[in-house]
């Protein structure tokens, strides 16, 4: 045994739906060097200890995106997570399948929902049929144009973001970080003829359910930063179509709110978002809040120096005035 080997305790999620009554955690212990990837350890368990362990993997080099799973609660690639730091922080290594996708066996999930969302954003160039791509000649883009989507092609579709996303886990309408980052990539591609349609469509197909919690950006092994691209999509969607949904009305209402008094006017914002009639379902609980916190219904005093804000809006939001 090499000198720097340590004993590493694993707790691995085991479940075969249809056969097992409930999921359970199986303990294994391996002697490993700290630099051993979790994937290598799991393959040793499968090959030397327990051939029934189910897991998905391929390249072992953080390229194929097959081995995403939850390691000590975080969704990430098993091939690039070393056992040493995990052991140091947690004293053990708990391995579970990704969230938000049904388990097929042990660490293998059904990625059907993830790929359906991906296909649904039509992640391919849609050219204007009247202006076909020139044959035999490259279609040039400027460096600045390419820069706008330099991060998104790095995506390896591992679904770590989809697993980490609380909106996916709470609302089937939300397409997930990866699908939206892909959509962004085509929405800013100057060769794509459908970007306006894409933005109009996504406004009603879940765009505004993103929580900007940045859990996807933390989970992404390739620094695609999906949460930031979703933010970009929101601004682009408002620019194309104006505020049509609760989410965009709330964002634009917030913008107007600040212009008017420099500070948030809670009741007015709710009215701007839902409309008077739409507020009705919120009313019973709203009254409960109002009884404890009567300020929700009052107009806050304006800040000092409101004229400065007005001038900033005048310069940077010329179309926003209404």
């Amino acid at each position: 045994m090499p000198a720097d080997t340590v004993s590493v305790p694993f707790e691995v999620y085991r479940y075969l739906p249809g056969q097992d009554a409930a999921p359970r955690f199986q303990r294994y212990s391996l002697d490993l060097t700290p630099h051993t990837p979790v994937l290598t350890a799991l393959l040793r368990i499968r090959d030397e200890v327990d051939p029934t362990l189910g897991l998905r993997y391929s390249c072992r080099s953080a390229i194929c995106g097959s081995c995403a799973m939850r390691i000590n609660s975080k969704s990430r690639l098993a091939c690039e997570t070393q056992v040493g730091p995990e052991l140091e922080r947690h004293g053990r290594i708990v391995v579970e399948p990704m969230l938000n996708q049904p388990v097929l066996r042990d660490l293998v999930v059904d990625q059907g929902p993830f790929w359906r969302e991906y296909r649904n954003v039509e992640p391919h160039l849609k050219l204007d049929p009247r202006r076909p791509m020139p044959v035999g000649k490259p279609t040039a883009m400027t460096p600045a144009e390419v820069d706008r989507f330099k991060e998104t092609p790095r995506c390896i579709a591992c679904a770590a973001c989809y697993s980490a996303c609380p909106a996916v886990g709470s609302d089937p309408e939300f397409p997930g970080p990866m699908a939206l980052a892909k959509l962004y990539r085509f929405a800013v591609d100057p060769r794509d003829a459908a970007h306006q349609d894409r933005l109009v469509r996504i406004q009603t197909e879940g765009l505004w359910l993103c929580l900007r919690c940045h859990l996807c950006t933390e989970a992404c092994p390739k620094d695609v930063r999906p949460s930031e691209r979703i933010r970009d999509l929101k601004e682009m969607a408002i620019a194309v179509q104006g505020a049509t949904e609760h989410g965009s009305k709330h964002a634009v209402g917030f913008k107007r709110n600040i212009r008017e008094g420099g500070t948030l006017n809670e009741m007015k914002l709710v009215r701007q978002t839902y409309g008077l009639f739409g507020m009705l379902p919120q009313l019973p609980h709203g009254l409960k809040i109002w009884r404890k916190k009567p300020e929700v219904a009052r107009r806050p005093p304006p800040i000092e120096g409101q004229a400065e804000l007005e001038a900033i809006y005048e310069a940077l939001d010329p179309e926003g005035k209404r």
Partner: peptide, 11 residues
């Protein structure tokens, strides 16, 4: 509050 960022990032 993050909402203004979504409406107009530069602003």
């Amino acid at each position: 509050s993050g909402f203004l960022d979504e409406a107009n990032a530069l602003l």
